[in-house]
Amino acid sequence: MGFFAFLLLGLIAGVIAKALLPGRNGAGWLLTLVLGVLGAVLGGWLGGVLLGVGLGDFFEIRTWLLAIAGAVIVFLIYGAATGGRRRRR
């Protein structure tokens, strides 16, 4: 998978993970991209360690499931680290 495909995967996985989690967080699109990419990396690593499978091609379902699961974990860690604080505008 190429660099830009991985960024797109991370962004979409981050948006899906953000939508799956209850409540609101103050992450904008750039932070969602960063957390989603970190989640995709984490999901791929955990999939390799725990399940013996890693990230595959862009259109494989296991790639998306691992990336979304990793992004959910990263968003939960981010929420715990920031205390669930929201930005006020």
Rank of each mutant, 00 (worst) to 15 (best):
G43R: 15
L35H: 03
L66P: 01
T82E: 07
T32S: 13
A67W: 00
F75I: 01
L20G: 11
F3M: 10
T82L: 08
R86E: 14
L42K: 07
I16V: 15
G48W: 15
L42Y: 13
Y78I: 01
L65T: 14
F59Y: 15
T63V: 02
F6A: 01
A71W: 09
I73V: 09
A80C: 02
L66Y: 12
W64F: 09
G43E: 08
F75T: 02
I12H: 03
R85T: 09
I12V: 12
W64Y: 06
V74C: 13
G26N: 12
A40N: 01
I12W: 05
F3G: 12
G2N: 14
L20H: 04
L35M: 07
W45C: 04
V49S: 08
K18Y: 12
I61Y: 11
L42A: 11
L55Q: 06
L66C: 07
M1H: 08
L66G: 01
L31F: 14
L8M: 04
V74P: 10
F6C: 06
L38W: 13
A17D: 08
A67T: 03
L46S: 09
A71E: 07
R89T: 10
R87A: 15
G28V: 12
V53R: 15
G56V: 00
G56Y: 06
G39M: 03
G43T: 02
T32M: 02
R87G: 13
A19P: 00
L51Y: 13
I68H: 03
D57L: 10
V74A: 14
L30P: 01
G10K: 06
L21A: 02
I12T: 15
L65N: 08
F75E: 07
A19E: 00
G23H: 14
I77G: 03
A17Y: 05
R89S: 11
R86Y: 06
E60C: 06
F4T: 07
G23E: 11
A40Q: 02
G43I: 00
A40V: 00
A80M: 03
T63P: 10
I77D: 08
T32P: 04
Y78A: 07
R85S: 09
V15G: 12
G47L: 03
R89N: 08
R89K: 09
F75H: 05
L46E: 03
R62S: 11
A69Y: 11
G56K: 11
G70K: 14
G79Q: 14
F58Q: 12
E60T: 04
W45D: 15
W45H: 08
I61A: 13
G44L: 02
L50N: 13
N25S: 06
L21V: 05
L8C: 07
